[in-house]
Each structure stands twice: as structure tokens, then as C-alpha cells.
Design a protein around this nucleic acid. Structure first.
Length: 710
DNA sequence: GAGCGAAACGAGGAT
DNA sequence: CGTTTCGCTC
């Protein structure tokens, strides 16, 4: 392993064969990839079309693309540069038929998956009634990302049999609807390369050089994909930082980066340890936190930016005070809003900050949260459009069949579903045959017939007319605007603006002359929150720590440094999960260039119905006290190791994150507590996915100790 | 079947 | 706390 300084970094760029660049936070990771591509094209004479560069977000891809083009002095970089998911889409559009699937497919987002799973659980009846759709989906996703199939899933635990059945049905439903989910974009691509040597060969011969950013976040499917693509030319160049691995819950396997040198023999490895971003106090504090992790290859970042303000810590009396402090501080210090980010662990924390910002008249943008394409009105229109190009898509059909209300109610819908099952047809096919069906009420029959005509007319139009025109006619014929206005008298203006914005996006797509409506819809489902973030606005940026990865700001405020929030309550039960939370904290801290302010609250409303005392995060305690400047004085309060000023729970060790056993419901985790003493209440989430409130004094609860499994 | 208010439910991070 | 489902009336 060679540790590189700035001057030696060029050596990284010139070799061939597998290479791993362990690049610390702020060490110029993107620059290394940009320079490497520039070297390949400008000096080695590699045809750009033989280069494949993969990232995790469109934003990162866009930025990289601009920088490569600028570096090469061309208008557009001609190589394939984009996200793993869009590469999967690119491959599957061409070759998914080799897996026996139709080339015209829809991509289901999480809302589609959720509504499908809800229905499947309902259909399965009592056997699955206690399962939560979200838990089942993430259970499936976990196995799926390891390229498993339903028959490979475990069935020993109670409930797992039902989950296996649901997985099988989910899989069948997707196939019937000609749809794939997000995981499939990677999993099916990996499977295609595993099972079809000709397809693998085609892509592996095409891409002489494969470059991957954020390699620590790859899952098994992405790892296999990378392996197969580089199986002919063996030029795989990956850049990553094991300390910034924060997506294990999405299937990322930290072993991919830890084992790179084993997986790719003859690999060269480099370390970039100079941080060009942060001042010394910020870097020292961040290092002090992350060094407590054990799953590391080990890097010690250093910076030439000596001096600088100390990292501050403010312990607010409550969450409102925390938000107020941040806003007041930004105003008082006259910070330029565009240079400031407020970061937090959960989306729910954003509300208080927004309110405080509004009160002070400070401009802000929220990145993430409610996704544009996840909004109800957009989703409705999208589902109509999907139906036009893919009539087999039952999930979209169910969503729009009676929206706006057109007299096809629950009774009729149930009947139609039954016919669909009995005749093994799609819902749309059933609709087409009901015109003559006496068992359906005449009024409903008329409505169904009108609906079928509407879809047919628009589908025909969609073949020739611009998408924006189709959307216009769709909105007119369904009276969608009137429906929105009626359904939401408070917010209908905003909602209609959203619809207009979507129409504008369609018009833009028409002008660019994309590859048809289906391609447009497929690409839309891969648009992420950060992609639509306008960085040129003079506004403070509010986002989660996860969204902030890869970004940097002069001034960073990191909120909610409390046990249960960062580290998050759901991670408290396992040391591995705590380490990931620690990495997340490290990622957030290292976004700061000039100043870093850590905040916590002594009390906070957690789940709505009560205020709970909070312990300061263990991560704050990991920073030596002389490296922290306590705003408002050091109250002498010890973090996590000692007593919080307000006693947390005297009774039986029940507190946030405690693992308990309930006589009726089994094992669970304490999600939230309120009250104290005899009146102590706890909300407990059980392994079945259910959660319930209990009076601790009265409930048949036992505390489980030393249970570190997850 | 639609529309309304009440009750129940669910709440981590996101391509 | 915000959203979805329930249950009632028309």
C-alpha cells in the first residue's frame, strides 16, 4: 500500500489493471476519476466510447461529466457515465429478453411496491395479516440484492413462510405487469451476465476501462456487475472510503472494498490521506469519532489548513431551541446562506428548522423529503401515462381506475379482481370484456366502458403526439384539475402548480426528442431528490446526513446529536449498526470546510405525544473535551456514559432501544418512552413489525440483556 | 357509490 | 404528527 502525497498522486492515474484508491473524505475523490479519464483519453488515446464510469447518484454523474468535458475541452464526454441503476436500465432495455422478459417494461418505485405488497398481504389473509408491507419488502430486498430467489430464502423463523409466499407472488405480479423494481435493475443485469456468456462478453469487450466511484457502497449485484464487465480487459479502477460506508441497509457490502485486493489479484492500492476541504479542528474532531470503529482499513487524514475555529457544541433545552439557535447563529454571524448546510439524521427533524427559518425570514431549500415524483397528483398522472404504454400494469390501473371518482367503487373493483384471477387476465383485459357482463351494475359498466375508451384514445394519441399534448388531453378528459381543486381546498394551488411543472417536464422531454414515452417514464423513476436541487439559489440547504454525502459546505450545523437519533434508536442493538451510525456522523462532520457546529437537545418530542428527556450522543463524548467549544458554557454534563440531567427511566432499565420480551407479543425494542415512575409508558416495536404502547408498571415485560443480534 | 368526520396506524436512511 | 382507513349518511 502506497500512501500518496499531492505530488505523487499522478502515479495513481497512469497504471493499468485493477486499482483501488482509498480516498479519505475531502481528498479529491472525484478529481482522481476525472483525471484518470482525462489521462486515458488525452494521453493513452483510448476511445471515450470504451470507457464506463459508474456513480451512485445522477448528481454525481452530472458533475463528473461536466468536469471531464471541461478537462478534455470538449462539449460532451462521449463515454458511458452514469449511475449503476441507469446502466442496468441501459443493458436491460437491450437484452432483458434473453432472460425471457419483454423488452417493454415499467419500473416500479417504492410507492408502487408498497401498494402491491399491501394488496398481496391482504389477499393472503390471516396467514400474513400481522406482517407490515414495508418489513416484507425490505426482507425481500435484502435477499434479492444478494441475487437470491424466493426458494433460497429461509423459512425457519415464524412468519418466514408467509414472507416466502409473498415474495413468490410479488415476483409473479411484477412479471405479469411487465415491471421491474429498483433492485431488479441491478439484480437482473447481474444475472444476465452470470447466465448468458454472450451478453457478458458483448459488454465486457466494449468497456476497456471501468471506473467506479463510492465503491464502499456497492452491493453484491453491483459487485458482480463490475466483475463481469471487467472480465475481459481487467481494467477496473475503484475509488472509495470504507469510513464513508453508510448504505448497508440498502444492501451495500463493506466487504467489497475491504476485500478488493483479494478479489482482483495483482491489484494496485493507493491511499489518499490529505484532506483539502476542512480546517484542522474539524478534521481532528471527525477523526476522533471515526477512529472508534473497528471495521476499518485505517487511514489518518491530515490537512494543510492549520488554524481555524474550534468545533462548537450547543446543548439546547429542547428541539425548538436547537432550531432557533441555528437560525439565530446564521443571522448573527452574517453567513452567506448558500454556504451553509443544516444536516440531520431523519427527515422528520426538518420541520422545526423550517419553522424557525420562516420566522426569521431566512431563505432555505429542503433537499429530499417528499419527492416530486412521489407526490400524489404527479403519481396519478404518471400512472395514467404508464397505462398507455403498458396495459398489463395492474398496479397503475388500480391507482387510477377510480381517480377522479367515476363510479367504479370498491364493490365493482373486487369483482373485477376476482375475474382477473379466475381468467388469468390482466385487469385491463377484464375491463375490456365487462361491457357485456350482466353481473356488473349498468352504471358501473358504462363507467368502465368510458374508461377503456379514454385509455384507448390516449394510447393512440401517445404514439404520434407529443407527451405534453397527451397530458393536456388526459387532464381535460378526466377533469383532473377540477378534481384536485375540489379534493384539497387548502393546498390545491400548490398541487396544480406541481401538475403544471410536470407538464413542463414532459414538454422539455418532447423538445429533446427522447426515446418515446416508455423511455421517458423509465428515466423519471430514476430521478432522485438531490438531482433537482438548485445549488445556485442563495438559500441555506437543509438535508439528511445521507443526502449530504459527496457534498461540501463552508458552514455545517449537525443537529440532533442524541442517543436514539444519531446513533439512531434502531441501530442501538448491534455494534455493527452503531459503527455505521458513527460513519454517518463522520460523513456529516467532514462536509464542513470552515466551521462545524454540533447541536443536541436535552428534551425532544419524539413521536408526537409527549416530550422525552434525551441523552447526548456518545459521538460527542468521543471528541476530546478540549477540542470542543461549548456554546453557552460547559454544563459539565457527561455524554452517554454518565447521568443525563433529567433522569431517564428509573424503572427496570426500560429506555430507548432497550430489548424487551412481552408475554404475548414476544421480542421487541423500545421505540419511545413518556411519563416516569408508575406512569411510565413505552412504545415497543415487536419483531412481527407491530408496535404498541404499554404502561411499563402493568405490562408483562422482561428486559433482555446482552442481546446483540440483529 | 360518494362524501364526510372519526379513528387507527405508522414513523430511518433512498437509487 | 400526518396520512390512510373506517364507518356512517345520503
Amino acid at each position: 500500500m502506497i500512501a500518496l502525497n499531492n505530488a505523487q498522486r499522478d502515479a495513481v492515474l497512469k497504471g493499468d489493471g485493477p486499482a483501488l484508491v482509498l480516498a479519505g473524505a475531502g481528498s479529491g475523490k472525484t478529481r482522481v476519476i476525472v483525471e484518470r479519464i482525462a489521462h486515458l483519453v488525452a494521453e493513452k488515446g483510448v476511445d471515450a466510447r470504451n470507457i464506463l464510469a459508474l456513480t451512485f447518484t445522477n448528481k454525481a454523474a452530472q458533475e463528473m461529466s461536466h468536469r471531464v468535458a471541461a478537462r478534455l475541452g470538449v462539449e460532451r464526454f462521449g463515454g458511458w457515465l452514469g449511475t449503476f441503476h441507469s446502466f442496468g436500465l441501459y443493458v436491460l432495455r437491450r437484452d432483458i429478453d434473453k432472460l425471457g422478459r419483454p423488452k417493454q417494461f415499467t419500473i416500479f418505485d417504492d410507492a408502487d411496491q408498497l401498494s402491491l405488497m399491501k394488496k398481496l398481504i391482504k389477499d393472503l389473509g390471516a396467514q400474513a395479516a400481522s406482517l407490515s408491507p414495508r418489513d416484507v419488502l425490505s426482507w425481500i430486498s435484502n435477499y434479492k440484492q444478494d441475487i437470491a430467489t424466493p426458494d433460497m430464502a429461509p423459512s425457519a423463523q415464524p412468519g418466514e413462510n408467509a414472507k416466502r409466499v409473498l415474495w413468490t407472488r410479488y415476483h409473479e405480479a411484477l412479471q405479469r405487469a411487465s415491471a421491474v423494481d429498483f433492485d431488479d435493475l441491478l439484480v437482473l443485469t447481474a444475472r444476465l451476465f452470470e447466465e448468458h456468456a454472450d451478453a457478458r462478453q458483448k459488454y465486457a469487450e466494449r468497456y476497456h476501462y471501468v471506473l467506479i466511484d463510492e465503491y464502499q457502497d456497492t452491493n453484491r449485484a453491483q459487485y458482480l456487475l463490475a466483475r463481469h464487465i471487467s472480465s475481459v480487459h481487467h481494467n477496473i479502477f475503484v475509488v472509495g472510503d470504507e469510513d464513508q460506508s453508510i448504505y448497508s441497509w440498502r444492501g451495500a457490502n463493506i466487504r467489497n472494498i475491504l476485500d478488493f485486493e483479494k478479489d482482483f489479484p495483482n491489484a494496485s492500492a493507493f491511499r489518499l490521506e490529505q484532506n483539502y476541504r476542512s480546517t484542522e479542528p474539524i478534521l481532528k474532531a471527525a477523526n476522533a469519532v471515526v477512529k472508534n470503529n473497528t471495521a476499518r482499513l485505517g487511514k489518518t487524514l491530515w490537512t494543510a489548513k492549520e488554524g481555524g475555529d474550534p468545533v462548537r457544541f450547543y446543548d439546547a433545552p429542547d428541539a425548538e431551541g436547537e432550531a432557533r439557535f441555528v437560525v439565530d447563529d446564521i443571522v448573527e454571524k452574517k453567513l452567506s446562506p448558500a454556504q451553509v448546510a443544516v444536516l440531520f439524521r431523519t427527515n422528520g427533524q426538518v420541520r422545526l428548522v423550517e419553522e424557525a427559518m420562516r420566522r426569521k425570514g431566512l431563505a432555505y431549500v429542503v433537499v429530499g423529503g417528499v419527492r416530486f415524483y412521489g407526490r400524489k397528483e404527479i403519481k396519478d398522472v404518471l400512472c395514467y401515462l404508464r397505462l398507455l404504454v403498458n396495459p398489463a400494469d395492474d398496479v397503475s390501473l388500480r391507482r387510477v381506475l377510480n381517480v377522479p371518482a367515476r363510479g367504479i367503487g370498491a364493490t365493482t373493483q373486487d369483482l373485477l379482481e376476482q375475474y382477473a384471477i379466475a381468467r388469468k387476465q390482466s385487469l385491463m383485459e377484464v375491463l375490456r370484456e365487462t361491457e357485456m357482463d350482466q353481473s356488473i351494475a349498468p352504471r358501473a359498466r358504462q363507467s368502465i366502458s368510458d374508461f377503456v375508451h379514454l385509455i384507448d384514445d390516449l394510447a393512440l394519441e401517445a404514439k404520434t403526439e407529443p407527451t405534453a399534448t397527451v397530458v393536456d388531453h388526459l387532464l381535460e378528459r378526466t377533469k383532473y384539475r377540477e378534481y384536485v381543486q375540489q379534493a384539497d381546498e387548502k393546498d390545491y394551488r400548490t398541487r396544480l402548480e406541481m401538475v403544471d411543472e410536470f407538464r413542463a417536464a414532459c414538454a422539455q422531454f418532447d423538445v429533446k426528442g427522447g426515446g418515446g414515452l416508455l423511455a421517458f417514464l423509465q428515466e423519471l423513476s430514476l430521478v432522485s431528490d438531490v438531482d433537482s436541487w438548485d445549488t445556485s439559489l442563495p438559500a441555506v440547504t437543509l438535508m439528511t446526513c445521507h443526502s449530504a454525502k459527496g457534498l461540501e459546505f463552508d458552514h455545517v450545523y449537525l443537529l440532533g446529536l442524541e442517543e436514539g437519533l444519531l446513533p439512531h434508536a434502531s441501530a442501538l442493538e448491534s455494534e455493527d449498526n452503531i459503527e455505521e451510525e458513527r460513519r454517518l456522523c463522520y460523513v456529516a462532520m467532514t462536509r464542513a470546510r470552515v466551521s462545524l457546529t454540533l447541536c443536541a437537545a436535552k428534551a425532544r418530542v419524539v413521536f408526537g405525544d409527549g416530550i422525552a428527556p434525551r441523552e447526548t450522543s456518545r459521538f460527542v463524548a468521543e471528541i476530546p473535551r478540549d477540542q470542543l467549544k461549548f456554546v453557552g458554557g460547559d454544563p459539565g454534563r457527561k455524554a452517554s456514559a454518565g447521568q443525563a440531567p433529567v433522569a431517564i427511566v428509573p424503572t427496570g432499565g426500560i429506555k430507548l432501544g432497550t430489548r424487551v420480551w412481552h408475554a404475548q407479543f414476544g421480542k421487541g425494542t423500545v421505540m419511545y418512552t413518556s411519563g416516569s415512575g408508575a406512569k411510565l409508558r413505552a412504545r415497543i416495536r415487536f419483531e412481527s413489525g407491530r408496535s404498541r404502547d404499554f404502561m411499563v408498571a402493568a405490562a408483562p415485560l422482561k428486559v433482555l440483556d446482552g442481546d446483540k443480534k440483529k
